[in-house]
Design a protein around this nucleic acid. Sequence first.
DNA 1: TGCATTAGATCAGTCGCGAAG
DNA 2: GCTTCGCGACTGATCTAATGC
Lengths: 352, 352
Amino acid sequence: MAASLKIISEQLGLSKAAVSIYFKDPSTRRISKENKERIRRLADELNYRPNVIAQSLSSLKSHVIAILIPLNVSYFSSTFLNQALCGIQSVLFNKGYNFIFIPTRGSNSPVIVRKQLERSRGYDGFILFGTRACSEENMRENVEQMLKADYPFVVLNMPDLGYEINQIVNVTPKSSSAIRYLLELGHEKILLMAGARQAPDTVLAIQEYRECFSERGLAVNENLFLNGDYEEMVARSELLQAINNGIEFSAIYCLTDTMALGAYEALNEKGLKIPGDISVIGKNDSFFARFLNPPLTSVRVLMYEAGKLGAKNLLRRIESNETPRKIFLKNELILRLSSAVYRPLNMDQGIE
Amino acid sequence: MAASLKIISEQLGLSKAAVSIYFKDPSTRRISKENKERIRRLADELNYRPNVIAQSLSSLKSHVIAILIPLNVSYFSSTFLNQALCGIQSVLFNKGYNFIFIPTRGSNSPVIVRKQLERSRGYDGFILFGTRACSEENMRENVEQMLKADYPFVVLNMPDLGYEINQIVNVTPKSSSAIRYLLELGHEKILLMAGARQAPDTVLAIQEYRECFSERGLAVNENLFLNGDYEEMVARSELLQAINNGIEFSAIYCLTDTMALGAYEALNEKGLKIPGDISVIGKNDSFFARFLNPPLTSVRVLMYEAGKLGAKNLLRRIESNETPRKIFLKNELILRLSSAVYRPLNMDQGIE
DNA sequence: TGCATTAGATCAGTCGCGAAG
DNA sequence: GCTTCGCGACTGATCTAATGC
């Protein structure tokens, strides 16, 4: 049985309040010196530590931010997420906020978030993180829930949802479009290694793909849209299968660097040279991108900054009730050696 | 103002207990159908959600595990930690436990952990994660604190501390020793890219280094122990400096793959071939190791398993009060192309 | 006796008010 | 009237025992 204020106060013949006052500020003058000394001694003896749960209840402030991630698998392996977490952490820790991850077993995003919210009243704020399992529509439902419950929150890793809420949006300006860049290099058969069709990132990428192609009057071949599920191994096998099926392409744009790893593997296995035969571009500019062979051209997404700004705005909302704001961060295409000017591929030679 | 049981019960002319009973089990037969319906409707209208803080206080069970990491910088970029977190998460989420990270601004490990503990009574259990900032002695102090407070806890990423506590220890069997392997390949000037001298991992590595060398009757050159601070860029510059200072070596063992990246950079800059001129071995076998140029030989550390087993044992302790157990996981040397048989280096040729 | 319901204690704190000196 | 010192009421839930019909 852990020592509590009550136990200490009873043993000393004081009120809980008196003991509480002392611990809140040991230099207080509201408690007599003798009593301070007695409290200190007994607390030390009983190894007293305040109960944060009770503190939170009584002060109606928990100093805990819940991070809601609509995904029911381990997600700390995602470099995307980890970059954002680093940014979030840098702000929250400075301001003395803890952050918590809530478990769920739901199958889809709205269910997961709803369940998380059911177990969340009492936390000071929320960070909603978009994932591959969370369509834009899903996230809108989630946002509606948050608004209805009147929770302070911020949305990360999602396209602009249109609400007047705290949101950090990472956008790709035309000048940083991987597809546009590949087209400029002369590639016209560009394979898109994306995720499931409803994943927001995939939706945006396909939209951008179509725009770029229609601008140039080129037809879009839907067979070039693969679903690598944001997993290295899936991307690898999808690509191998595409090659085996005789699908022709001279460049690949992968919506994560991890899938680009899978692409590298598949191309190596097939004896295709990067970028001699096939150009590859990744997304997120993970720290390992420049160490690959060849170094990977990648779209840098400012997730660290997104996490940092998101957390800042959330705290502003919590502590000063500032009005929500939307911030746009521009992605940047980082050129490395995995992408090159189009050169017709001699299929007989390249693929065994 | 968020709706509470009290508000609902007052508006309906019922007692808090009645409303509480309903929410605990909506199919209960202790509440009449009409009242159930009234409660449901009002709760819906007021957007009622139970307050987890109050629930925790009342049930004396928070279903929250605190993860204590004695480091005051962002740590989600560490692949080590992330692997462990994935394992932890896989267990906790299945069992319905949340997990929380506690902020601190302390300068050293005991201070950080002490501060974290001061803000932690009320959580169900603790995971103590060893870091570069936490010497073995530091961790012992932390463990003493935990024992004194009678908190359920488990220690990860630390050498065997000798206590009868829940601990998962990752050990390197002789057959997986990078140093031993390099010696067998004929290398005798082996550079050790480690961390600060008190970091547990560094202590162990230096100890192992000395053992291997003394077994073979070889003298140890302390100039070959560098402090790369577990950071890519620090490792890079330390290595460049060593090379510039004319320190001779034919192999490098880096205590993290991240530092191996730095080593790759430095060697490339100096025009030294891996493994032709210099063999490189990393540690942790991060997912990117096999994609490097050349693929990196690395000591695989089972951090995912450590996290998983640690969380399991912690929950066993919490839920069934099982006695603590210590588990040893064996590291494994994964051979790739960055390490090769010793070949005398022509310095004039190699370094410009 | 069983069904539907409630008062009140409890958890471990905080906060503002009040009473001596 | 200003300290110094301390207490009662309250936070939002759960749980036990009791009550009325």
